[in-house]
Design a protein around this nucleic acid. Sequence first.
RNA 1: GCCGAUGUGAUGGAAUUGGCAGACGUGCUGGACUCAAAAUCCAGUGGUAGCGAUACCGUGCCGGUUCGACCCCGGCCAUCGGCACCA
Length: 802
Amino acid sequence: MNKYDFSSIERKWQKYWDENKTFSATNDYTKPKFYALVEFPYPSGQGLHIGHPRPYTAMDIVSRKRRMEGYNVLFPMGWDAFGLPTENYAIKNKIHPAIVTENNIKRFKEQLKALGLSFDWDREIDTTDPEYFKWTQWIFLQMFKKDLAYKKEMAVNWCTSCKVVLANEEVVGGVCERCGGEVVRKVKSQWMLKITEYAQRLLDDLSEVDYLEKIKATQTNWIGRSTGAEVDFITTTGDVLKIYTTRPDTLFGATYMVISPEHPLIEKWADKLSNIDEIRDYQEKAAHKSDFERTEMAKEKTGVELKGVKAVNPVNNMAIPIFISDYVLMSYGTGAIMAVPAHDTRDYDFAKAFNLPIVEVVKGGNIEVEAFTDCETGVMVNSGFLNGLSVEEAQEKIKKWLEENNKGVRKVNYKLRDWVFSRQRYWGEPIPIVHCEKCGYVALPESELPLKLPEVESYMPTDNGESPLSTLESFINTTCPACGGPAKRETDTMPQWAGSSWYYLRYCDPHNKEALASKEALNYWMPVDWYNGGMEHTTLHLLYSRFWHKFLYDIDVTSQKEPYMKRTSHGMILGEDGQKMSKSRGNVINPDDVIKVYGADTLRLYEMFIGDFEKTAPWSTSSIKGCKRFLDRVWALQDCLIDGDDYREELRTNFHKAIKKVSEDIESLKFNTAIATMMALVNDIYVVGTINKKEYRDLLIMLNPFAPHITEELYEIVGYDGVLNQQSWVKYDEAFCVDDTVEIVIQINGKVKDRIMVNKDLNQDEVLEVAKKAPKIAEALDGKSIIKQIYVPNKLVNFVAR
RNA sequence: GCCGAUGUGAUGGAAUUGGCAGACGUGCUGGACUCAAAAUCCAGUGGUAGCGAUACCGUGCCGGUUCGACCCCGGCCAUCGGCACCA
């Protein structure tokens, strides 16, 4: 036996797969297809992280198994390469971001290849390639034409450190998702995408896809649908003050109103308000608070009454005061609420702070102590024609009443906001729009795509919140495609999420020059059958790309409503100390080093064996040795080889069981137990002492998706026909999955007392008979009467005795 | 506060449908091989008591259902992730 020289074996097979294009998806559209997708990485300067191979290997295993099962498999890889770190690195080191990107991609690609992942490299894509982002821009233009992209002056999240606008999804815990910097509100003119128009469909169609429950729950929460009513309160000035509420049943308990500090009616009423200075002062303070400060100060309610104006409650004609307070957001509902302190905790706090009346309209709680918010148990009181009804009945009745009397309408609201789509950065897709004094915002003709990034001296973001492109006269000044007059180009670029919102479509037909992909290719390959990615993208990339896909479906580019049939998620790999890996903690594991010492097959195996795929797991340098030992033992089996073309009696059940378990576990992402099963099988083989050619071959096939290099090599060494990856996946027979004799556990009163071996499928009476005769059992039952006997076939007997 | 998870030996984690708790791996202990070490191989390894067969205890805590509960139900505690003044 020669040495298991993993380095040269791995290099050899990686070269072989490359040269033979072993894993190219064919365009034979008659074969059954399988589209496996992993999130393409951002090629950072740090190179591959030890966490990257976990999802990649998992889907590689599924892909390799599918190929052996006869599918035409598409398992592609590419680069999500626009982004801030590249730009920052470029600024710091005075290298063009395109060069930085090219270098990073080169490194990433080498590292991925060293893992033996079966990607189809002929379909590699790069979001920064003009031939790619031409189509990102094209999609944007289609949205613009359908009024789904619009420019709006609005308060946005501004990261003071990145000097860039952030989408709501990018603000995490009040700070910048990427850098942790402070986020403040800033009024800017921004490109927006109307994702809200798709809110209901994004919610509804979750029922048509197979996503992990927690992914569906997170998206559902984020979309945040609520049902209620819009109600018109008429003010003493004669204006309509429209509010939104989910609890119209509590209308009789509305004792005051609160409007957002940004509410437009305040300006209209300005000369009627006796305390306008105080109000202006409060508005000023609210405007300067960052979102972080606003949430930080959530505990204490502040506000100012608008003195001089009152509103009339439409159900009882009571005139009630109006306040402004920053707990009411202009961006949700109508920016105004009716306050029902008895049945809403926030209103309760506010009423206590300002000494306002609290009127109970739902009986069931103790409003002396706290707001009663339960909708299930209460009964309506102090509510005129609603008295005596349940909350649910009252809601229905009041909604009808509002509509019949023209005082309000039923209304559905969503927490989801439109997507802030412009970034004040250089390294992103230019937005293909020009602004003309006469014609307004005008789309660039499609023939002018791609609109490439100009060469600039400096990529530095500017302090005034403008894009680096804004200083480049030659880029800005152009002519209007509509009227031919002078016009200015948009200087903001698209966010990082743009290119990844449709990349899975490009893989279907990556070199197409006429369209983002041919209809034929899309019809064959789409939808993605299985998409694995990080939980952190649930309300970002995953939601955005579903939105784009639905839009492309509406304009007949794609034929499916949903892009991804199945979505799963992997856990993070932590440092050995159980902490997140980071340079500052000094607990970073570098995949290159691991491959050098143990080989790619061992790394792959260990990343799959480390624990439950969906959970975070700490790295363990000593544990990885176990996986190496296992591969050493598989390698050494070549010395125990004997002839034979069928399983031998003593290993038949072991093989059938193992094949069943491994096959099923791969489908349910239980790679750790699949590997444990193969380890146990190899242990059993060593007990027998020999392995025949049929048995070895099947072991190699089973192990191949996990450890592709060593298995290919052994397959060749033994001299089987062809190459391993071309073989069919192993099959099992249910009939051989149970041993001829089975061990039956015998319990007395639920406690295990003995075990017996019996022939399988013996009938109940026979087994009970044998069980009672077992010496320990007979002794224990002596002098007792059996009240009940329970029999579980091939497993267990329980005597209930007294 | 709301939503979603999770809690099992020294340790990473198994346990199909309510049916042998601790598979598989690591670590540790002892042994073989070796001048020695590494590697490899063999045996053992939840706790307590006992020379021992064995007995009792044991899946975060308290209770319940059941012949039988890591699993189901009720009530807590702890940890993690997400959302959060969304009317």
